[in-house]
Design a binder for these strands. Sequence first.
DNA 1: TCTCTGAAGAAAATTATTATCATTTTTTTT
DNA 2: AAAAAAAATGATAATAATTTTCTTCAGAGA
Lengths: 149, 149
Amino acid sequence: MSDRRERLARLDRLMGRLKEHGLRMTPQRAAILRALVMDPNHPSVETLHRRLVADYPNMSLATVYKTMNLLKELGEVRELEFSSRDNRFDGFIPQPHPHLICTRCGRIIDPDVPELKDLIENLVHATGFDVQSHRLDFYGLCPSCLKKD
Amino acid sequence: MSDRRERLARLDRLMGRLKEHGLRMTPQRAAILRALVMDPNHPSVETLHRRLVADYPNMSLATVYKTMNLLKELGEVRELEFSSRDNRFDGFIPQPHPHLICTRCGRIIDPDVPELKDLIENLVHATGFDVQSHRLDFYGLCPSCLKKD
DNA sequence: TCTCTGAAGAAAATTATTATCATTTTTTTT
DNA sequence: AAAAAAAATGATAATAATTTTCTTCAGAGA
């Protein structure tokens, strides 16, 4: 269960997924996959690209974007969306609280989540983080959209 | 406990916060605050602006942005950030899972949250939503940044 | 009312991401 | 092995939300 072995297995899997979709394994793609798989953190496209140009001086930012989008479409990678595009506001409750968001109609409700307080306490205990805030969004279909199926 | 009264109280508060910071109460700002406070949903800047131009034909989008940013700075409004700017990736675990994000050094870790399964079940039960996915980010200071204080 | 600083508005700038397209590379076919 | 077809790369342009800039205007205290 060496970390390195795990990462290489993951690399294999990613290469396999691309191949099984008839996509070509180019040197650039191989390098991007390697960089992704070897990254211990949660890199941005920018970060990956910065590292890649060291070895591949004319690696294009567009190529990194395209490859990451492929992986996203294959469900092999999850994008953590930060900051600002078409943002919405909580006008009433500035304190952080969970949201329940309907992916069909866009409705957002503020559910009660009584378990939250304990959950955060446990998290603080287990990790040593000082948790100060959060962003908790649950996605799904609201009752009225469910009826329309 | 009329809804309207609550909203007017909130409007008062927002006006007070601006005033106590030496900021002027202009017709535009008053209108933006009113639109925000009366909105039953989680409006975007775009949405607010679209409504405001009906009554204030030369209300500028920049003005709405500026006012919302003021409220954000005062902690009176919370921005729900969707989609794409400087995004980062989970390269290893494409399934949704909680993140613990250090607001100082940017480190992101994937904590265990054993309570999550039950929490979601309860949520489904209480709201009638079919919860299919989530985005759970906890923000705070990591142990090593805490030490540096 | 006068003054002066903050605010509004229009337009330009910024920035992350996506699209375009000519060129190059890879794969398939002859 | 060469030619043809398909697909990917990379440079650049396009896009779109947000921010900045700068000139003009207006609110609030003297």
